[in-house]
């Protein structure tokens, strides 16, 4: 079961918070105002004890994310993966994606809508 699950691997070290994934998702799914399959959340900015600042963006994939089943069936990637301006989202099975975690600031989402 777990091996068949599909997911999205996010490298949030490089998510610039540009909203491309959110709009890609809204348009490919015909979502209305206030509805999202993915929403970018902001962590920070705050100053750490060493004086340096922290501010990350992380896309959060919600219940409306179906991993673009129609697009995938037609030979395409999920729209957010295709259009992410930082190439920071990868699509695959959970097992494949887990293999690709080779650094920090990565997060594996397994959306409920699949």
């Amino acid at each position: 079961m777990a091996k068949e699950l599909k997911g999205l691997l996010v490298d949030y070290e490089f998510c610039s918070g540009c909203h491309a994934c959110e709009v890609a998702c809204k348009k490919s799914h015909g979502l209305g105002a206030g509805q999202y399959g993915v929403l970018v959340t902001k962590f920070g900015p705050f100053q750490k004890p060493d004086g340096r600042w922290e501010m990350d963006f992380v896309p959060h994939f919600g219940e409306l994310c179906d991993l673009c089943a129609d697009r995938v069936a037609s030979g395409r990637k999920p729209s957010c993966v295709h259009h992410c301006q930082s190439f920071a989202i990868q699509y695959g099975t959970v097992a494949e994606l887990a293999e690709k975690i080779d650094k920090t600031k990565m997060a594996l989402f397994v959306p409920q809508g699949q």
Binding site: C18, H19, A20, V23, A24, H82, H83, Q85, F87
Partner: peptide, 13 residues
């Protein structure tokens, strides 16, 4: 752009 687009092009319709 290697396939990438920003939110403004994605909202082109």
């Amino acid at each position: 752009n290697s396939g990438r687009l920003c939110m403004r092009c994605l909202n082109m319709l």
